[in-house]
């Protein structure tokens, strides 16, 4: 569960969001929507502990940083880096560090995550050789191996074709079925209505919970 208590967020002193209060239940599936520049990315980063609050609090109820996976918008991943897909994914496994090797288990998990996201047989493919859509699948595979309890997706379906979107959406549903909490920034209201039981709409510097978007509870 994540509780927002009168949260205020600023960029360079300018208020982006204020007076955000409410809760996101454990294991819920929430769509975060709102026009460009309404603060969706900033709010997700604040939930992940990557953006300081200028007011209020976010209570994470025992979620550690390692329990949170953020699939960032405009990932900083250097796509010219000479590294194979499987290694990118394996490096994201929890508890990879200086004294901890990437073991056979982690490599197997990376391979499985790649095939779950439709990148079968791409284990040794350099990241340089991926199309934009394939790259987004790779970021999903990396999120899978994080094995996080809270998963934050920032515009995860941008630059992804319809077939890939269906596949990645099924991954999101699988996370939901596994009891993980998922919050996804989305623009496609039709998708929100069909697949996301809860919504958080940002507009005019504040948040509106489960605003009427014609949602049928799922």
């Amino acid at each position: 569960m994540i509780t927002f208590d009168d949260v205020e967020l600023r960029h360079d002193g300018r208020i982006v969001l204020s007076g955000v209060s409410g809760t996101i239940a454990s294991g819920s599936l929430t769509a975060l929507t709102g026009p460009n520049g309404s603060g969706k990315t900033t709010l997700l980063r604040a939930i992940a502990g990557l953006h300081p609050l200028s007011g209020g609090r976010i209570v994470r109820h025992g979620l550690e940083p390692a329990d949170i996976a953020l699939l960032a918008q405009g990932s900083q991943l250097d796509r010219s880096f000479p590294i194979a897909c499987r290694d990118v994914v394996a490096l994201a496994a929890p508890r990879v560090g200086p004294f901890r090797q990437i073991g056979r288990d982690q490599l197997a998990a990376a391979t499985a995550a790649l095939s779950r996201t439709g990148l079968d047989g791409m284990d040794r493919r350099p990241v340089q050789a991926l199309s934009a859509g394939q790259f987004q699948r790779l970021l999903f595979a990396r999120t899978i191996v994080r094995d996080a309890r809270l998963i934050l997706l920032d515009e995860p379906f941008t630059a992804v074709d319809a077939a890939s979107t269906q596949l990645l959406l099924s991954v999101v549903h699988e996370w939901h079925a596994q009891g993980r909490t998922v919050i996804a920034v989305l623009h496609d209201m039709d998708m929100v209505r069909r697949h996301f039981p809860h919504t958080l709409l940002l507009a005019g510097q504040t948040a509106q919970w489960d605003a009427d978007t014609g949602i049928q509870a799922a």
Binding site: S75, L77, P98
Partner: peptide, 20 residues
Amino acid sequence: LIWRPLVLESLDPGFMAATA
């Protein structure tokens, strides 16, 4: 010793900052 964290930091500093 620092190989893997260094690779990760060079590959994706944003991810590194968000996780480790």
